[in-house]
């Protein structure tokens, strides 16, 4: 019980606005997203900043739904299992940041890492042109659309995204992504 108080105080000290850890769904995304916008309005973040952070938040959360390897399976008729993810939204002086983490297939983690490395090398104009080119491709060519989502986040973020991959077992890895609004 004491630990929870320390946990709360640590998060407060670190400027963390939101911390979610659990099965992720579209309705959770919508509720947290709405609360996040309200909180940022109260904090007097500009409309542009709120939109950019919200956009990054949605793409990260929907990536969790689309790519997480389920770790707990519910009854078979209830779909493919829970998409467990972690999302933290915080404020570091005048900038907002979002960190997300989820368990994904190793082959997928290699693809994400390669894409992020390539996008880190692009300037604003190159990102824009790459986005427009990818948008013209069919979804299967874009690999479930994540290609477009990653570029979208790079375009909305004020700094290039960072990512880290920790292998979990022979088939899966834990992917962490940090984006600054």
């Amino acid at each position: 019980m004491e630990y929870l108080h320390k946990f709360y105080m640590d998060m407060k000290r670190d400027g963390i606005i939101f911390c979610f850890n659990g099965p992720t769904s579209q309705s959770i995304i919508e509720s947290i997203g709405t609360a996040l916008r309200k909180k940022m309005e109260v904090d007097n973040a500009g409309r542009g900043t709120i939109q950019r952070v919200f956009s990054i938040f949605i793409e990260l959360m929907q990536n969790i739904i689309n790519y997480t390897e389920p770790d707990i399976f519910g009854p078979e008729d209830e779909g493919p299992g829970f998409k467990h993810g972690i999302v933290i939204v915080g404020r570091d002086e005048d900038k907002f940041y979002i960190i997300s983490g989820n368990r994904i297939h190793q082959s997928e983690s290699e693809k994400v890492l390669e894409s992020i490395k390539a996008l880190q090398q692009m300037n604003r104009q190159e990102l824009k042109e790459h986005y427009q080119r990818m948008r013209r491709l069919e979804p299967e060519e874009q690999s479930k659309g994540a290609g477009l989502g990653l570029i979208e986040m790079f375009r909305r973020a004020s700094e290039p995204l960072e990512c880290h991959i920790s292998p979990l077992d022979a088939e899966t890895a834990f992917l962490s992504i940090k984006a600054t609004g």
């Binding site: 948008r135 013209r136 979804p139 659309g145 477009l148 989502g149």
Partner: peptide, 12 residues
């Protein structure tokens, strides 16, 4: 006001 990346493709 806002659309995500997969809606972007659909709007296109």
């Amino acid at each position: 006001v806002y659309f995500n990346s997969s809606s972007s493709k659909a709007l296109m």
